[in-house]
Amino acid sequence: MERSPAHRLLWTGFTGLDAVQVQPGFQPGGVVLFARNLDPHPVDGPARCHALIRGLQERWGPLAVAVDQEGGAVSRLREWVGLTPGLRAAFEGGGAEACRRWGGLWGRGLRMLGFNVDFAPVADLYDPAPDSALGGRCASADPEETIAAAGAFLEGLEAQGVRGCLKHFPGLGGTRLDSHVGLPETLDPGAIAANLAPFRALAHADRLVMVAHLKVPRSQGLPASLSAPCVAGNPWGVRARWIPDDLQMGGAEGWSWEDKVRHCLLAGHEALLVCQTPEASLACAEAAARMPETLWAPAAARFRGLRRLLHCHAGPFQPDAWRAWVEEVREEAGSIN
């Protein structure tokens, strides 16, 4: 596949546990690691992850290297550290200060591995219904408590040199349909306003914000993730470095790759997140390369600017420091659980 600068818009998942195995067919601007990329061995695995990230940075850097490490139900490091609390459990167990400690703990561990972005925290409002789409990943049903919990987590995380990412704007709180499967919808203006409150309080022009596959009246039949009136053109005063949720999810499956890429660029996103299969990542990269340069170049420039701001944790892996950190995480988890 001929290399195009537009390919650098891709923030992509991949297969493989070692850098030599990562051959997506294009040069991405970012990568995101999942459990499939992490050797579960408690000693060899972390060092192997560090070598993987370092190899990709040497080949394609500067790269945005991300993981979903929230704790609780979404913990890619679980095989190495065991069970840990999600945002709600941390907040209930110790308030905003516990959320700050967990943000700092995850930041230190991710930095040691070489990550520079954590797709966390969740800023959606908690819904106690048993069929809630997000459950304990959310701190509270109260917007002010959610602001306190998510804001503290961000402070702890980013103090360690790892960039956070608020999700899932404009707010999935109260939805029942998982956007991995289909397209949820929120119609009530009061619910929309309440869900927006944490993003309005915590987002700013340099804050990474992930936009949900969520239908709201303002999205005009599209998911908010693909809707210019909901992203850069939103009327709620939220400014951010925007990225869509994974474009391979069920909530975005009703649109071709050509349409998804075009809508994302028109909406104001600066990267295209595709996480699940190599075929989808390649299809998205090819669609991006077919777009007019006038459409993709502004997004590419913004994403390039972000990558230059991210820390590149290029030092050698430190097994003793890693083991001490794992023990600290387990001790902290035991004090809450």
Rank of each mutant, 00 (worst) to 15 (best):
H7D: 14
G13Y: 09
P24H: 02
G25Q: 01
F26Q: 11
Q27K: 13
G29T: 12
F34K: 02
N37F: 04
H41V: 07
A47G: 09
C49F: 01
E58S: 07
R59S: 09
P62I: 04
Q69V: 11
E70Q: 05
G72Y: 15
R76E: 06
R76N: 02
W80G: 07
G82L: 14
L83K: 13
G86Y: 12
R88Y: 10
E92I: 00
A98C: 11
C99Q: 05
R100W: 06
W102I: 13
G103I: 12
G103R: 10
G103H: 10
G104T: 11
G104F: 10
G109F: 05
G114M: 00
N116G: 04
V117L: 15
V117A: 11
D124T: 13
L125P: 00
P130V: 05
D131P: 00
C138W: 04
C138H: 04
D142N: 13
A148T: 00
A150Y: 01
G156I: 03
G156H: 03
E158W: 07
C165R: 03
H168K: 02
G171T: 09
L177A: 09
D178R: 08
L183Q: 02
L187K: 02
A197N: 02
P198Q: 10
A201Q: 01
L202M: 04
A205P: 07
V211G: 00
H213M: 13
L214H: 10
P217W: 03
P217I: 03
S219E: 03
S219T: 04
G221H: 08
L226F: 12
L226K: 04
A228G: 01
C230M: 10
C230V: 14
C230Y: 05
A232L: 00
A232H: 00
N234F: 12
P235I: 00
W236K: 10
R239G: 12
R241G: 02
W242Y: 09
D246N: 15
D246W: 13
G251N: 09
E253Q: 14
W255V: 03
R262L: 09
A267P: 03
G268I: 07
C275Q: 07
Q276C: 05
Q276L: 11
E279H: 07
L282N: 05
A285R: 02
A287S: 07
A287R: 05
A288R: 03
A288E: 03
T294V: 15
L295C: 14
A299T: 06
R302Y: 11
L306N: 09
L310W: 03
C312Q: 14
A314E: 15
A314K: 10
P316W: 12
F317D: 03
F317A: 06
F317R: 03
P319Q: 11
A324D: 15
E331P: 04
E332C: 15
E332N: 13
S335I: 05
I336E: 10
I336Q: 13
